[in-house]
Design a protein around this nucleic acid. Structure first.
Lengths: 342, 342
DNA sequence: CTGAAAGCGCTTACAG
DNA sequence: CTGAAAGCGCTTACAG
């Protein structure tokens, strides 16, 4: 910056003011400084400027696996907003309990960002306390806490919509499949199960434990086992509501392998509206993951930039919607589904 | 840091030395300092330390869409390595030509990281020059340049393996489908097409332009159109080699919609070994995306940390391998594939 | 509208 | 093994 000042024949204060776009610089001076900066292809040192302003110009996102669809979509939304607002995007991912503990143990070191978005976590009270102690704006994504800014969909409502769609198609035996999660990353899963139960109750369908399964994630055998369990019940389900599109796709694949037709023998419904769902003609409950990320980023920027704290407990809820595609069909009684011979 | 020094009864120099783990600190002092730091839950200001060391403690990754499978997997690999080495991960994504131009125009501003990994780009000479001017370590990921450190798979060789697998199954009419890309993000696509042609030639199969299609990405109609084009040829293909698993999955879906059986009527082979491939029993050419990301991160760290420049043109090539699953089958002539009545 | 000076919180020679 | 002092490159009152 000193070089730029010299070349433009002004002081560093003026260079600083010019580069930050302050109005108190004459057009002529501004011109000289900008040309000098460009000629030297000068880039300001963020380290130096953060040291004095206390702002880092960065927003951090903590999420689960970087390969997960939801995190990718959220990051895309966050990134789009941050590009506009000039912040850089810092990403932290934790994929198991050990990493999670390590992250929260070394939390203070993460103070080197202006805000932290926490995605899909089911935060413990200790973790909440740690975040409080950080003294840094924290925005929850895809989870709700009354005293924190949060951006989310109503997962229970989404699940109710999905199940209702199946009920409206005439299904009465509706299973629910949710990947087993030992890490507590998904705040949403519990809510979706709740929504499933609520929708059944509202439809006057008794809840049946045998229709709710939690296979380990991404294990083919477990998915086949789930199908096997369902298809060996006295009264098998005629529809499956899956906790995510990824699970739904795996279920469909396992059903096909067992020569069961979707939706002929079994309707399958997902949750997310993953790209996959469109490709594979999967009916699903859509949630706008990109928009959620974008809204969370905008909220974080607002909190950073406003001195007044009225954004600090703002909640943004996005709607879910059912996308009816080819993997669900009206229930038609058939011989196949009554395996008990008289 | 001054607070910590006071509480521990030492100078800030000593606190700094202790916290950086320098050996020249007595055990007793170290103990006092660490306790004080912990009690105050002190976190060092990276801004201040980078200002003097010139290191930011951050590594930046530039890539295509954050939702893309490849970038997600690469980021996961990068993140794992950076966690070990203590760097933070900064992510930049450009999704179209305008954003790409904007990124490279404002390139100097990106100097606020210790290294930049550039993923999946087909860099122009101007972009290369811009990166050179940055004076910052740059590692190419999934692309090759002789004078830059690069981490990649041999895409041509991978495509040869894939096509060879189809040839070995008896297929002679083998199509190639590659999403149309107007943005020049995928360095790999050209190489894969080359590999396809090489494999055909090696097998003595004439290249047929009618068997190579470039539908727009993610447009269902275009995929169905591709299938239609193939199935209305005088001699339709009996196998399709797709540029990626995502395309393969969409093709299979379009084939099913047209009541064509996979692999009965058409073998389909992908590229990547996306999770999807396992779920959907898709044969594919596997590339280790996570490992590629990890290796690139390690290489970047090595370049940053070594004064000698011998890593600066190191190239790391990963192997691809064919994963044979259920979407490919031996070629069996059948009436269906000879639609021309005598 | 512009400049000189202090200071942000660290690290790094330099002494001891 | 430890401390005092200078300085990294900015921004921000304070003068003018």
């Amino acid at each position: 910056m000193a070089d730029v000042a010299e070349r433009a024949g002004v002081s560093v204060s003026t260079v600083s003011r010019t580069l930050r776009g302050l109005p108190s610089v004459s057009a002529d001076t501004r011109d000289r400084v900008e040309r000098a900066a460009h000629e030297l292809s000068f880039a300001i040192s963020r380290s130096a400027s953060s040291l004095v302003t206390g702002r880092t110009g960065r927003i951090a996102v903590l999420g689960p696996r970087l390969e997960s669809w939801f995190l990718g979509a959220v990051l895309a939304g966050v990134h789009t907003v941050l590009r506009e607002t000039g912040y850089d995007l810092l990403v932290y991912s934790v994929t198991d309990l050990a990493e999670r503990r390590a992250f929260f143990d070394r939390l203070p070191a993460r103070r080197n960002a202006d805000a932290l978005l926490v995605t899909s976590f089911d935060l413990t009270p200790e973790e909440h306390a740690g975040l409080d102690a950080l003294g840094m704006p924290v925005v929850l994504v895809s989870q709700y806490a009354p005293d924190r800014p949060s951006v989310y969909v109503d997962d229970a409502a989404g699940a109710r919509q999905g199940v209702r769609h199946l009920v409206n198609l005439g299904h009465r035996r509706i299973a629910f499949v949710q990947p087993r999660d030992d890490t507590g990353f998904s705040w949403s899963s519990r809510a979706r199960l709740t929504g499933y139960r609520q929708a059944l109750e509202a439809a006057g369908i008794p809840y049946d434990d045998a229709l709710v399964r939690r296979p380990a994630q991404h294990v083919r055998r477990e998915l086949s086992g789930t199908i096997g369990a369902f298809m060996s019940l006295p009264e098998p389900p005629t529809a499956i509501f899956a906790d995510s599109d990824e699970v739904a796709v795996q279920l469909i694949s396992a059903l096909r392998a067992a020569h069961l037709d979707v939706p002929g023998d079994m309707s399958v419904m997902g949750f997310d509206d993953h790209q996959l769902a469109e490709w594979l003609d999967l009916s699903t409950v859509a949630q706008p993951a990109r928009e959620i990320g974008g809204a969370a980023a905008r909220l974080a920027c607002a909190i950073i930039e406003s001195a007044t704290g009225d954004e600090r407990t703002r909640h943004v809820e996005f709607p879910t919607s059912v996308v009816a595609r080819g993997s669900t069909a009206p229930y038609r009684p058939s011989a196949q589904t009554c395996p008990e011979a008289p």
